[in-house]
Each structure stands twice: as C-alpha cells, then as structure tokens.
Design a binder for these strands. Structure first.
Lengths: 112, 112
DNA sequence: ACTTCTATATTGCCTCGCTATATAGCCACC
DNA sequence: GGTGGCTATATAGCGAGGCAATATAGAAGT
C-alpha cells in the first residue's frame, strides 16, 4: 500500500500519462494501473472519479458518454492539448524530485 | 515551483534520506535541499519544522539542542533505527511509482 | 429473487502543507 | 543605540484533497 501523500502526488501524472496513451474510462483505468504496477498501486473509485472531475473542470481532459455492449454505459476521457502541456510540467517536476532523491541515495561524497 | 502534492510526497523520503547521511538541524536542511536541487525544490520553515516534529513523535528521528558559536542555538536531528527502516519503505514506494511512470513514458507497445 | 461484476457519483472525515506571524540571538552600519 | 538583515525555531489557521462509505443502476447467471 502506498502512503497517502505519494498516492496524491502520483495521481495526476499517472492519470495524464495514461490518457496520453489514448482515451479510456474510469473503471478500466483503475484496473490498468493495478495491472501495470503488478498490484502495487491500487486506486479506488472515490479517488479516481473526483480526480477526473477536477481535471475536466481545469480543461485538461474532455469526456463523452458511450453505451457499453456488456453493462452500464461508460464515460470516456481523453487528453486535451492543455492536458498534454500539463503532463509535460508534471513530468519535469517528478524528474526534478527523482534526481534529488538519486543524489541522496547515491554514493556518499566526502561531505554532504 | 513544485506542486503541493508532490512536495508533500517528497517531504518524508527527502528528509529521512538527508538525515541518513548524518545529523543536521532544520535551517541547514532547507539550504542543503535548495542547493542539491539547484534551487528547484524549496522548503519553508512552516513546512520543515512541523514535519520534524511529526517524525519525532513517530520516533523516526531524535533531537538535541546545541549552542551555536555564531547565532541562536540549533536543534540537531538524527535518524533512529526505526527511521532507517521507514526510509527503506519510503524508497520502495517511491521506486514502485517511478517504475510505473517509466512504463507509461516509455516506448508505446502495440496496445495499452 | 439474489448475487456478482461492471460502472459512475457523492458526502464527510481527517490529514497535512503552507502562509502568516511570533520570538530571539548575533552582527554591521551609521 | 537603533535599524536592518541573517540565522534559527515554533505555531495557529486555512484550505486542498484522498478515501471509506454509501448510493444507484445495468447485465448475467443460478
């Protein structure tokens, strides 16, 4: 289980990255993340749907309803151009932090 | 400037990693992080001190006062054995998320 | 009818970062 | 000796947001 804070920080970059690969609907996204992380990262509906709504409010994603052949209708989300830019910003920030952590985890210099 | 969520997620792993390198006091930690991140990551006192207090409450760090030759006294913090274990857990979690992001940013497979 | 899986939505609790503010020692300058 | 600036720690209060719990509902099998 991930800490709350790390889950929070990973939410937007993961979601934007997934939608950057192609449109998807909420329920499928949850399962894909679980699959891609070998079960290490699990989102719940109470986490995912509010996030998608916030991203839509910010015009980072757009959505449309689509009937399913095998169950309830689905709401598909896709990345907007603004969302693609936001993804690049998220990437840069993540990599900045990652670089710092690698420095701190790497071979110890003479001092500090 | 980092997003609030990413700052929050990075707080504990960065702090524990820094103290794993040796004991340090609050004000110096703020400057070291800024230096190590080339100014990209900046913590404020209102972020750092409550964090140190939380970590101490959880017995992940221990502290003692030390007079300074050139200013106000300083409170030095060091990692406890429990803190070292917590650092390993934080590392693992961070790397799990990082691995997922790398998959999503990597070369696109045939499908999803 | 009942259960299970799929699928989306919302309320409310609780954690926690961060702005603003307070306190205080030391030093340089005028 | 007052003023400003750097060093150093502390805390109240606000606001954002994850997530458990809960609700709704279609489809399919028993």
């Amino acid at each position: 289980m991930l800490s709350k804070a790390l889950t929070a920080a990973a939410l937007r970059p993961i979601m934007l990255s997934i939608l950057d690969r192609g449109e998807a609907y909420g329920y499928a996204i949850i399962r894909r993340i679980e699959e891609l992380s070998d079960g290490r990262i699990q989102w719940t509906a109470g986490t995912l749907y509010p996030l998608l709504h916030r991203l839509e409010t910010e015009s980072l994603v757009a959505s449309y309803w689509q009937p399913s052949e095998s169950g309830p209708r689905r709401k598909y989300y896709r990345l907007t151009p603004k969302g693609a830019k936001a993804l690049e910003a998220e990437k840069r920030q993540w990599l900045d932090v990652h670089a710092l952590l690698l420095k701190l985890w790497g071979p110890e210099p003479a001092f500090g």
